[in-house]
Design a protein around this nucleic acid. Structure first.
Lengths: 212, 212
DNA sequence: TCCAGACCTGAAGAATCCTTCATCCAATGG
DNA sequence: CCATTGGATGAAGGATTCTTCAGGTCTGGA
């Protein structure tokens, strides 16, 4: 149930001509729209195809089944967020711990908020489509990036262990989730972003042996 | 979709005789079992009834529909956890901030772990059954308890604002979720508990004006 | 221009599922 | 002991949904 829960989620055919690429994108986007307007329970392959302006058959040409479609959408979103965080970690190399943390957290929040609708929509299906496994995978990848960045911080003697970083990442995920699911105002988002930075900074400081 | 999403989740009939109470409990427990063994997607009212050793009709005598059943199970679990945290807050009154935080966090972790199976099972349906709304409600209730306790801490000048407490609570939720969904060993749980305490202590300290 | 292969279509098969209701069993109290 | 109300049953109606496949349409290279 853990690792091999991802078989049969493989896509079916790769787009070759330009028009099919458009179709696949349309289907993915339609899945999100349907998720938002009808909920996970009422997400139907037919409905998704309709919304995408294609027929069901077309959908099944690229995704072997409903789960495969949702998995692809989820994976794509996670990868985008992870990339943003990795980029931030790259940019923040050699900066002091607190600044580094700030940039990383802000990148995460901003990436999530950029397509808040997708984030919210995906919370509703993550569990039915190997979400936890994917989260684990992405968290692992992100942790590596954070870890590598921390190695370069000038004011750290011994960096926090892997476990602490994972705790921080899951805390960030939890905060963003509550936030997104509450349909926050821009002001609220701004405040939450600040607080999340503070939360992570405090924790990192506490979990780290500082170099004087 | 937000607040009034909870209508039609009302139970249908209250147990009067003792045997029906047993039945209702059996149904709730069966729902959890089915959730764990078959997943949310394959949770069927008939299957739940079978597992509970009753017929579908009986199920529908106490729950107006499938969602109502799942909602009840979810609500019950949340209430139990919230009560445990409230009790811990009560016990921790007049203790210093860091100790208070520690007791609160540990109560939360322990309550979640006590029925880890339920927690994990419910993650899979929370979203389809007004989960976010319920979480918001429970978080609000818990925040009140934490807030009240903080008022009594001797080493605090001005307590953190409501928002900060909610951030902390959602962070705790996120960490526990990742943890539970990874099927952790007891040793991992112990370590996570420690780290979560540290996380919350650091944040509370940073978000509070300390009295010298 | 022509064709092979890429693409698309959508009706229909097959499988579940949710929920109801007519009917029967059990308990309680007068 | 009997009537009344609570409790339980499970077959079947009504509704959805997933997925396939036989047969069209479009595109790019020869």
């Amino acid at each position: 149930m853990a690792t091999d829960a991802l078989v049969a989620f493989e896509p079916r055919k790769m787009p070759i001509q330009a028009r099919s690429t458009v179709t696949v994108d349309a289907i993915s986007e339609a899945a999100i729209q349907v998720l938002l307007s009808h909920g996970a329970e009422r997400l139907t392959t037919t409905r998704v195809a309709d919304r995408a302006g294609v027929s069901v058959g077309t959908l099944y040409q690229y995704f072997s089944n409903k789960q495969s479609l949702l998995f692809a959408v989820l994976e794509n979103h996670f990868n985008k967020v992870a990339s943003r965080v990795e980029a931030a970690c790259q940019r923040a190399r050699h900066k002091p711990l607190s600044e580094m943390t700030k940039e990383m957290v802000e990148a995460f929040v901003d990436a999530k908020m950029e397509r808040a609708d997708i984030s919210v929509a995906l919370y509703r299906v993550a569990c039915e489509v190997g979400g936890p496994t994917l989260v684990k995978r992405v968290n692992h990848r992100t942790r590596k990036a954070v870890e590598a960045a921390l190695e370069t911080a000038p004011d750290i003697k011994s960096p926090p262990d892997q476990f602490a970083i994972e705790i921080m990442l899951s805390a960030m995920g939890g905060v963003m989730r509550s936030l997104l699911e509450s349909g926050p105002s821009p002001a609220t988002v701004r405040k939450a972003r600040e607080q999340l930075v503070l939360l992570c900074q405090s924790y990192m400081a506490a979990a780290t042996a500082k170099r004087v």
